[in-house]
Computed example of a mutant assay.
Amino acid sequence: MTLTVLLLNACVAFTGFYIISKIYHSSLFNSYRLRSSVIGILAGALGLFLMYNAVEANDMVRVDLRHLPLVLLAFYGARFPLFIATLVIASTRFLFGMTEQAVIAFIATFIVSIGMLWIHRLLRERLFLQSIFLNVWALFIISIAVYINMGWSTAYVSLVLSIWMIGMLVGLLSSILTIDLEQTTRRAIEYKQSSERDHLTGLYNRRVWDRYTASIGQENRTYNVLALDIDHFKHVNDTYGHGNGDLVLQQFANILKVETRAHDTVARIGGEEFVILMYDLTPEKVDKVANRIRERIAAELFHLNDFPPIQITTSVGVAHGTSLPIKRMVDLADSALYQAKHEGRNQVVVSTYDTPQPIMT
């Protein structure tokens, strides 16, 4: 009977593992805190269910697989959900009576979770070994807690052997499922990034730029498009080689990442051509931002392989407008960039929606 109940609980736990793992990897919740809370509560509810279907060793001692949801959360290193689930599982043990056994179970649950975090920190890159150790640690603490409650007896040995057999079996199966989900998710993220990101600089590519900006102009909102081009970049490639030209592009892109806001869209759309989308800046402010970027580029030392560091400059064309189609804005930015090049390079030209003629700064 004990073995049958534990097997049924294992099946429920296995299903819960799958559901929680899918939620953990989903983009259903925009808020990290909300998603973590939902995961923690679900894991705690799963632990509570397993407690309700526990094996009663005697009138006072109940044994179950409540530790399994904690193993899953520890495997992911999900500290906040793990804390919530631990608190739920440990506290709800008192629903079955305010006894000494409940106090021991409460303490044991927190010891299990704390030890799991330490194991995760040590073995986070060795997924299968980490999962095995998480299960072994939980079963070890559970065995000690049961021993404190029951003492050494034939019943204790029989119960603990059943717990270890079922616990390790379910732990192994759940580990395989969790690792498979984790690796599948990692590959999906890598594929998504490779399709959206420029392979050299890590910035968005032209396809993503076109997709993100497709609907711009349909809302009454002011925005700016900055078109940037590295001055005399062909000379860099011809003099130092294309490998060093790639290094210059990477360092140039890193500066753009640092000098723009988190919600700005930065993309590489050609060899040495970059674009930036910025919302809600006046012509004066966007002019300051563009010049700050230009000055930072001019002051930077770009490190090369087998050559001394070099300095480069950039020309920037800016289009400023409201409710203007993105294609028109890009054309305005390109025209302003062309004028900056024509006027001597290393400068910013701003073109506004209300001013047909570009204004050089």
Rank of each mutant, 00 (worst) to 15 (best):
L228C: 10
D231S: 12
H232G: 07
F233P: 11
F233E: 07
F233R: 10
K234L: 14
K234G: 11
N237R: 13
N237G: 08
D238K: 03
Y240D: 15
Y240V: 11
G243E: 07
N244T: 07
G245E: 09
D246Y: 14
L247A: 13
L249E: 00
L249T: 00
Q251S: 01
F252P: 02
N254F: 07
N254C: 04
N254T: 06
I255K: 12
K257D: 01
K257S: 03
V258R: 15
E259Q: 14
T260E: 02
R261G: 04
A262Y: 05
A262W: 06
H263I: 15
A267Y: 08
G270M: 01
G271H: 01
E272N: 04
E272F: 00
V275F: 05
L277Q: 03
L277I: 10
D280Q: 13
D280T: 06
D280A: 15
D280P: 05
D280S: 14
D280E: 15
P283F: 08
K285N: 12
K285H: 11
V286H: 06
K288Y: 09
V289Y: 01
A290H: 08
N291H: 11
R292H: 13
I293H: 09
I293T: 08
R294T: 09
R294M: 12
E295R: 10
E295P: 05
I297N: 06
A299P: 13
F302G: 05
F302M: 10
